[in-house]
Amino acid sequence: MSEGIEPQAAVVVEDVSMVFNIANEQLNSLKEYMLKLVKRELFFKEFCALKNISLQVEKGDVFGIVGVNGSGKSTLLKIVAGVLEPTRGSCTVRGTIAPLIELGAGFDLELTARENIFLNGSLLGYSRLYIKEHFDEIVEFADLWEFLELPMKNYSSGMIARIAFAIATVIVPDVLIVDETLAVGDMFFQEKCEARINTLIQEYGTTVLFVSHDINQVERICERAVWIEKGHQQMLGTVDEVCEAYRMREKGAL
């Protein structure tokens, strides 16, 4: 517990910057690298994906992140999820986190759904016991009882998404990260997903980080929001303020 952070903050992002080194050329071979090094032609272009982002998400908040494509939203999410380490600054998350950024990480399509549930579950941080206990629940939610022993390469992409979502949300996380990737599956399943997320928010007080460039969806679901523009934190505030400003800018740009 570091000082200066309010106890109820679930996610604290402090002055985070993310700099990528983009090599002028792709140098993946030792020979090229040595040649360039000797010739002193080894230049890197710095690309700043995020610049001095600071925000705090209170426990139980539903927090939106808006911005156009390539503005750094996904980079920020990856930092919060702990996949990327920021170049500068720090990011603290209280409690368990369920990143729905990339569903089905580590699925091996040669394996059956049953085997994949255990594999993916372990990668998401569940214990063997926990997966066993909630196995029926997962299959029930994905509605895939008949295909449980089938290799997943025979599944449709919708079916894969269903099982991935079911595994990822069977746990009640303290922080849930929802990316735009949820636009998979049929209408019926999408509703089921939204219902599940709503249950998590309302009944369990889960903190949600929600990313979308669909401004209306953000307005509908979130309470507070941040607007990121080319890696800069453009605006932070209530969802109405941010969305209004964002719309103004879009109009201005058009």
Binding site: D108, E115, S122, L123, G125, R128
Partner: peptide, 21 residues
């Protein structure tokens, strides 16, 4: 550590199943 071990066991069993499928 216990959890990493669980992941390890899962990955080894995955490789094993796939090797001789």
């Amino acid at each position: 550590l216990k959890h990493d071990w669980f992941i390890l066991a899962n990955l080894v069993s995955k490789d094993f199943k796939l090797k001789y499928r």
